[in-house]
Design a protein around this nucleic acid. Sequence first.
DNA 1: TATTGTTATACTCTATAACTATA
DNA 2: TATAGTTATAGAGTATAACAATA
Lengths: 154, 154
Amino acid sequence: MASQPLDTETESLELGVLTELAGYHLRRASGAFAADFSRVLAGTGMRQVLFGILSVVDANPGINQGAAGRMLGIQRANMVALINELVDKDWIERKVAADDRRAFALTMAPAGSAKLAECLARIRAHEEEMLSDLSAADRTRLITLLGKIEAKEK
Amino acid sequence: MASQPLDTETESLELGVLTELAGYHLRRASGAFAADFSRVLAGTGMRQVLFGILSVVDANPGINQGAAGRMLGIQRANMVALINELVDKDWIERKVAADDRRAFALTMAPAGSAKLAECLARIRAHEEEMLSDLSAADRTRLITLLGKIEAKEK
DNA sequence: TATTGTTATACTCTATAACTATA
DNA sequence: TATAGTTATAGAGTATAACAATA
């Protein structure tokens, strides 16, 4: 029976000092979330990073490529391929900024707005599933606590 | 003044739907933690994954390579290079398991125990820094909430 | 001089499939 | 037939340095 050694394993093995380290649990929880995200969004062409950019462009029409990256913690250099990908998919439009000819102003393309809506519905379901053991208060608390950690970013 | 556009940026730009998504905040907080981890442990040769393995081996002397990977969510195939690296660094010892000649029993090497202790001290300081805006109750709460999410791993 | 976007590059983490040797 | 470890390989995310065009 295959379950026996697994049960034994789960019962007797320990994580050691990891148990009390927030960094470890953050890593695992974030990984579990990411895996479920890509499972739920398989076939849509959407990924966590791309969704992040779409969300920021949608909320800030005409935002610069660099500014969008800065908000999301994405380096200039890495934004290039990501924006190319979004433009190729016809999800966003990229025009030279009116006030600064070095910069690009990003706006949503119609297909991008539709994708954003479609994926958002799936993402809400995925969040509901992943957070099903947390009360409404717990969920708010979690986001608040995570926000305090994000603010420590250097 | 370079701070002016940045201030304007922070004031007026928005994250959009990301604001309310736990997955996004988990991703950012985990990334901030990871970045600080590697900053604090620069020069030691330690990385998050390696520390995880060391912690598990330390807590479960003689554990199998596969069992260790399963506890940490690391695939068999990816364990190989990681264990090779730890053996090359003389941080762990790998012997054929007494009861199963297919398996490897992992134990700490003296240098590994020393590294673990040294790094743990730095990691505790790094956690203290990253969680400085959280009360003791908040920290416990955070780990509990993350644990519930980890349990959703499929 | 500083900034926007770009290219090139490299490293880490993760995922899958196919293989071997033992069980 | 299943499991432990291995190899090969590929995709994705992230990091740095150097460059052109513009501010």
